[in-house]
Design a protein around this nucleic acid. Sequence first.
RNA 1: GCCGCGGUGGCGGAAUUGGUAGACGCACGGGACUCAAAAUCCCGCGAUCGAAAGGUCAUGAGAGUUCGAUUCUCUCCCGCGGCACCA
Length: 847
Amino acid sequence: MAHRPIHDIEHKWQEVWASEGTYQARSEAQGSGQKYYGLIEFPFPSGEGLHVGHPRSYTAIDVMTRKRRMQGQNVLFPIGFDAFGLPTENFAIKHGVKPEEATKKNIANFTRQLQSLGLGFDWSRVVDTTDPKYYKWTQWQFLQFFHAWYDETEKRARPIAELPIPQDIVTRGDEAVRAYRDQHRMAYKATTTINWCPRCKIGLANEEAQGGVCERCGNPVEPREKAQWMIRITKYADRLIDDLATVDYLDKIKAQQIHWIGKSEGAYVDFAVQGTSDKITVFTTRPDTLFGVTYVVVAPEHPLLAAWMRDGRVQNADVVAAYQETVARRAEEDRVAEGKEKTGVAIEGVLAVHPVTGETVPVWTSDYVLGTYGTGAVMAVPAHDTRDFAFANTFGLPLRWVVRATDGGVMSNETPFEEAGIAMNSDFLNDLPTWKAKDDMISWLVENKKGEKATTYKLRDWVFSRQRYWGEPIPIIHCAACGYVPVPDAALPVVLPEVEAYQPTDTGESPLANIRAWVEVSCPTCGGPAERETDTMPNWAGSSWYFLRYCDPHNDTAFASPEALTYWMPVDLYNGGMEHTTLHLLYSRFWYKFLWDMGHIPASCGSEPYAKRRSHGLILAEGGEKMSKSKGNVVNPDEVVAQYGADVFRVYEMFMGPFDQAVPWDTNGIEGVKRFLEKVWSVLSSDATHSDALETVYHQTLKKLTDGIELMQFNTCVSQLMILTNAYQDAQGVPASHREGYVQMLAPFAPHLAEELWRGVLGKTTSVHGCGAGWPVYDPEKTIAATFELVIQVNGKVRDKVVAASDVSEEEAIRLALDSATIQKYLEGRNPVQTRYVKGRLVNIVV
RNA sequence: GCCGCGGUGGCGGAAUUGGUAGACGCACGGGACUCAAAAUCCCGCGAUCGAAAGGUCAUGAGAGUUCGAUUCUCUCCCGCGGCACCA
């Protein structure tokens, strides 16, 4: 390549493609042929620039969409920038620049990098989540959540105006009605304990504070009470699980989402508190073990416990209070540390009444019961639950088996005792209540008003408020007289005001709160004095619907027209990182379903945004470690492109290994790809005479690429191209009849080289990459050579190989095998017991 | 602990889904070209026995099914990713 100015060539074609509009999708009105919407996760434009991992995903989908475009499909392969977010804000604070300026610069840099890779993006549809023209619709969509409630009966979101108001609320007046509505909105404000990161000074959603540490800075988070905007994603939990059956996602993605939503079915069971009207409601998935209950445990932060502490019922109040305090102070990490001894204290003076037997059992509090899951209280069945068993064991609490009467006598259910090696004492078998099946027990509880069937989820409602500057302002106005008033559509977007200081405040207020001129507004409803909401939206907001905007990115009257949505949606293929499985992917599925419920997305688009989801593996550093700035092992795409050019980079990334698996970067490996592309250039510069052997490899390669690209087997597609190229090298050139097809096959992988060969060497006048430019078709018959090497096995071991005609019959093949002198030697005069023939492969003789 | 994925030469990885294990690439060794080096081209390259022909062993370990197992079944070991006191 030293003799060819590779960068000039690449640059030249990039400009030609841009001016010819080669990669622009045709609109729904102009598009002919099948549409194909290929999507990659739009990047966050960080200051560091592109990582070599980005192009792996982008090139893969680029290869797939290029092939389909050549085949004549109307391809939409868009790009944009998810540019709001903390890193930019932190950078701005640190360097005293405006976040929008830093963002602009980063987007420009990313654009330059992406364009240098020759990716076939439709640059006329770029979106930027920080553009007011874009976030106007993010805000508008938030307001749709505000204007809606979830109808459990119809299992869909509906306009808030259609929310039935109970008569007793109506009679209490407008205030009560308004409060009732506010409680039912899909976007609602609630004071909750949030995960507060004292370092970032920000409230985090549970999913951003996994393991009790801040996702951004790794600092431990602490609980903090704060009024936050919440979105009722939990209402969609069932649909988010059930509809996975209708889409083609990698199984591991489905499994992770289902696990994350964490649905479990069981019952609420009420335990009365002796001598009071209180009842402790527990959640259990095993109501059939109700007779095994020997105590009840409430979470340390359980509201009932707080009430008992207040009314003086708790006899050991100081012990309980001390325990509560210890737990509150303890970091989440310690709490869940593996193998941790269980801790807890008995609540003296409080006894729970077993709902069936009427016996009293002690009530304990322990942090092994989570305040945030179920009802924050459990019935403990130490004989059948390992955690209860551990607790009972620590504190010497009694155990009781639940046994099932069977024909042969009595048998125990599974029990941790056996695991623990403790012998079972059969005394307990006396006086046992009748065992009931799970459903029977629930029926009994329902009939006797002691409980009900219940389903719980690990998924929590979505904390949607961020006390930060660099995000979409939440378009709500607080009016003392009217309550929460949405900013009227005509007044959208609510543009981020210019601010002097972006620093978050210790009070937990957004920096926007300091800008009084912006905060103070008159109420759109009554005209009275009012204040803007100063929290902003999380990063996940803009990315929850960007794929819809791509369908119609310049629309000023809607986020996208119904026509455009009908034409393009759903996304045919969405590729992205596994790390987004439980956050972005789940949020955007939910967001889409909601807009679909509300009729903002045409019903014909279907209830799922992505028909197919795939995920790429990580690119690791040369030693197999993760690339990281601190380790100094990061490979910079700019340097790779500078040294080898974009085509070598692309082909190498496709060749390194299976697309869905992690692979280490290998500097020697990229040299091999460089040699390969040079070989392509040199073999194509001379003609070879046509031969049957070349014809076979050629058609085998066509078949491999035609199928393999769809199956995302990029590494073996590149291998096959190498095999073909090696064959041409042996033949000292490419036969005239192969030249076009050969270049076309290379085109998705090495678009610049292919275009140079197509127009420069083959003398074509239009792009090899254009829509309908053509994709070579293979002849299945020609993929089979005239002869093949027939393997002959004796008792399953390869003993000889002979050349046979491809259409050899079974009889002939076996004859050939038996005629072989080598085989005769192995048979030692024995007669075959049986013979097997595998067409086109082998004969196995069993003696 | 639970869920998912994986374990094949010195390395990245192939193997038509039960049919020649190691394609393709890298690294390495030998040779050609060259005054020399680089580049390029040709040959070799799992282990082991053998001068060779050829044999034997080999896909994390062990068993099983089968004419035949990297592929299917069971048990176990190891690695990666996710979740994790979720009742």
